[in-house]
Amino acid sequence: MQAFPIRDAEPEQAVPTGRMGYDLDAERLLLHTVQSAEAFDALLTTGTLTTDPTLAEAEFADAYDWIHRMMAARLPTSGEGALWFWARTRRRHLVDSCRRSRGQVLLTCRVPRERVLLSHFDEWHMVLNRAPGMPRLPGESEDDAFARWEEAQDELATRLRAAGLRDAPIRNWPPALRNAIETSWECILDRGNYGPFECWQGTVHALHTTEVVEAVRII
């Protein structure tokens, strides 16, 4: 049974003013997600929202396969695919997301922390772009960090060209090379690698109506 409020609002009013209140150390994490009207209806009807992994963009199949395996290894839950949430972002970014999502539904949720896999939002793009994960070292300048990353990226490209695999999916790479890049990505799951004000995303196997605090239909 639905036990949370549902309201309609323009994007600017969909997100409360003031501090967002994110706390990545809380027992129940504050999360936000924008879902389609159809997904919201499914949540209301069944009490649980999951996702169909076949709907993921084929271009990023290797990236999604990796995050799904990380979820399977690190979370107590199971399931196919992942639901994506903001675990910490700026209010203006969330409002901008709502502006691009009229007709959809913004869900504010509180989910037990142990059921959420956190990953660094910006560095997730290293995974999407099949690039080495490489956070900045303590005391390292931004320029030096970038130069170190470029060197690793060039080395990877050279090895792929030599193997005739420049455009091949990661799943077709030699095991040692695939393991090396996938292991490097695990840095984006460790909050200790980044500063205190970074944007973080969260993935879960399922969302239950009991974990929804509010739903806003974006008009």
Rank of each mutant, 00 (worst) to 15 (best):
L160Q: 00
R28D: 12
F146D: 04
F197M: 12
M20A: 07
A147N: 01
T46Q: 11
T89W: 14
D96L: 13
T51G: 09
E12A: 07
G133E: 13
V95L: 10
L44C: 14
G195E: 03
D96Q: 14
S101E: 05
H125W: 13
A9V: 10
E114N: 09
R69F: 04
V216P: 14
G195M: 10
Q35S: 10
L177I: 02
L177D: 01
I218V: 14
G164H: 02
G192I: 07
A206F: 10
E59C: 11
D122A: 12
R159Y: 00
L29N: 07
G103H: 14
L165K: 01
T209M: 14
C109A: 08
S141P: 04
R136G: 09
N179T: 03
P196V: 10
L94I: 14
E10Y: 05
W173D: 00
S119D: 08
W149D: 01
E10A: 14
E211I: 11
A163F: 03
P169M: 03
Q35V: 14
M71D: 01
N129S: 15
L107V: 07
M126T: 15
R19A: 15
E211N: 03
E198T: 06
R161T: 02
L55T: 11
D23S: 12
L189M: 08
T183N: 06
D62A: 04
A63M: 03
T77M: 05
A39E: 15
S36W: 08
V213I: 11
A163W: 03
E182Q: 04
T45E: 11
P76D: 03
F197N: 10
Q13A: 15
P169W: 01
F40H: 08
M1D: 15
L107Q: 08
V116N: 04
W185N: 07
V95G: 05
D23F: 10
R171E: 03
E38H: 11
H68N: 06
R130E: 01
A14N: 06
D154T: 00
P5D: 11
R159A: 00
R161A: 02
W173R: 00
Y22T: 08
D143H: 12
L118M: 07
E10W: 05
T33R: 12
C187W: 09
G202A: 13
L29S: 15
F85I: 08
T108L: 10
M70G: 01
R7M: 11
T48V: 15
I181V: 02
L43N: 11
W124E: 06
E155I: 00
R113G: 15
M71V: 02
W185G: 04
L107F: 08
A73S: 02
L30C: 15
I218F: 08
F40Y: 08
L83E: 03
Q35W: 12
C187F: 05
A56Q: 12
V95R: 15
Q153G: 00
P132S: 12
I6E: 15
P138D: 06
V95F: 05
S97F: 14
P53N: 09
E214H: 10
D62L: 06
L49N: 09
E142V: 07
L156H: 00
A180V: 02
P132T: 13
L177R: 00
V127Y: 10
A3M: 13
R171I: 01
P175L: 08
P174N: 02
V111H: 13
S78N: 13
H68G: 13
C109L: 11
I219V: 08
I6R: 08
I6W: 06
L165I: 01
